Each structure stands twice: as C-alpha cells, then as structure tokens.
Simulated scan of single mutants.
Amino acid sequence: MPHVVGYAPGVYDLFHVGHLNILRHARSQCDYLVAGVVSDEMAELAKGRRPVIPLVERLEIVRSISFVDAAFVETVPDKVETWKQVRFDVIFKGDDWRGTAKGEKLERDFREVGVEVVYFPYTVHTSSTQLRRALSLLEGDAGRLHEAGLQ
C-alpha cells in the first residue's frame, strides 16, 4: 500500500473552524499530512496585508492540531518550488480556487510532476477576512463609545 503524503498550505491567521475542517478533511485523504504555513512576507505578497498573528505563533497552533503530522514554513510563492522541498503526493486547496486562473495554473504545474490537486468546500460562514472585518467594526464601536464618554 502506497504511503500518501498530503500538503495543506494556508496562512492560518486567526485560526478558525474552516482551517480545522480543511486539515481534518486533508488528513482523512492521506497517510501523512504536512501543513504549509505561509510566512508573513508571502502572505503580504499574496493578500496585500500581513497576518494578525505572527508566523511563530501560527506555526505553533498548526503544529498542535492532531491531524497535522508536520508543519512547514512556506517562503516562496511557487508551490512547485515548495513541492521540491517537501515532496508531497497530493495538495489540498479550498474550492474557491477551483476554475480560477490560479487554480488552473496550480493543476497544470502539478500535473507535470504527478501531484494530485484536491479541492475541499470553502467554509462560507467563517473566514479570517470576516473575522478581521468584525474585529475592525468592534474596535470602531469601542472608539466611538470612548469618544462619547460612554466607556
């Protein structure tokens, strides 16, 4: 029976149930799961902003998840370059990548090296972006209350 190594990359900022679901589902489809934790610099390059939680803390959180066998710091934007270091058999992504230019490039690149791309349902009701927005609104409300002398 082949030993299947899976790779689940992500920023894993403001860790939430969507992150947990991806790691749980990924682990169910491989024998050994490596979580790729995107560096602060790569996250800023990809998303235009740095994570709220520093890399060392995100790495510790992800390493502590029982579904994760190892964590790897992703420092380059090219996933094939990461594959050359980690050597996984399957990569897991949220299905928000499916059918996009990024997803199609990922599939093409990995087809060439024999890596399968597996998509999982994106957790619509919870995302780090939504959490950031809610925190920003709460901070704004607290500031307005303070300015009004109500806090």
Rank of each mutant, 00 (worst) to 15 (best):
V5K: 15
G6W: 06
Y7R: 03
V11M: 09
F15Y: 13
H16I: 11
G18I: 07
L20W: 08
I22R: 00
I22P: 00
L23R: 01
L23W: 00
H25A: 13
S28A: 08
C30T: 04
C30H: 02
C30R: 00
D31C: 03
D31F: 02
V34L: 05
V34E: 01
A35H: 02
A35K: 01
G36E: 04
D40F: 04
E41D: 15
M42V: 07
M42I: 11
E44L: 12
L45V: 00
A46D: 14
G48M: 15
R49T: 13
V52T: 07
L55V: 09
V56L: 07
E57Y: 06
E57V: 12
E57D: 13
L59I: 11
L59N: 06
E60Y: 12
E60T: 12
S64H: 13
I65H: 01
S66I: 14
D69I: 11
D69S: 13
A71Y: 05
F72H: 10
E74G: 01
E74I: 15
D78P: 09
E81C: 05
W83S: 08
W83I: 00
W83L: 10
K84C: 07
Q85R: 10
Q85T: 14
V86H: 10
I91N: 00
D95P: 04
G99H: 15
G99C: 15
K102H: 12
G103K: 14
K105V: 11
L106Q: 15
R111Y: 09
V113T: 06
G114Y: 10
G114R: 08
E116N: 06
Y122M: 10
T123Y: 14
V124G: 03
V124F: 07
H125D: 07
H125M: 04
T126C: 04
T126R: 09
S127L: 05
S127C: 05
S128Y: 06
T129V: 09
L131N: 02
R133S: 11
A134T: 05
A134Y: 09
L135M: 10
L135Q: 09
L138I: 09
L138Q: 10
L138P: 00
E139Q: 12
D141I: 13
R144Q: 11
A148S: 10
Q151M: 12
